[in-house]
Amino acid sequence: MSETYLIAFDGSAASARALTFGAERARASGARLLLAHVLEWSPYSFLSAEEVAERHKRRTEEVGRAETVILEPVRKKLTAQGLSVETVVRYGHVAEVLCDLATEYGATQIIVGRTGEKGLQARLFGSVAGTLAQAAPVPCTIVP
């Protein structure tokens, strides 16, 4: 059975490192790549009446931007190199959504970059990589 690597990609330098790492491994093992862009979103935040009315429009714009600007160029580049690449855009708590996606797509490994946040903020809110290390349903590689 061929492998699937789930790579969290948001266009940042850290996620680019994760992508490079994952692509190299995929070339060697023939694994399929699943690039996931997760937009941070809480159903319990507060919106004004006007924001409620515009939400669907904004969401459509955000998804469109994520697909065309962030994921599509990378997908094209990797496909040209002969890799099998799929992309997905989701909303939610980033680490939780990545765990759900891994199960949903039967990923054999999750690969994420590390932003290297230190200090109070990281302690209080934790990091995506830290949460995944504790909660991922499949092996998780954290790329520094």
Binding site: Y44, F46, L47, V52, R55, D100
Partner: peptide, 23 residues
């Protein structure tokens, strides 16, 4: 959120609709 489809995340949640109207 018990009946919210996770795929619809990013749309207005029932909680947000409630609080917006309550405001």
């Amino acid at each position: 959120g018990k009946y919210s489809d996770p795929k619809d995340a990013g749309e207005v949640s029932p909680f947000q609709a409630l609080t917006a109207a309550l405001s």
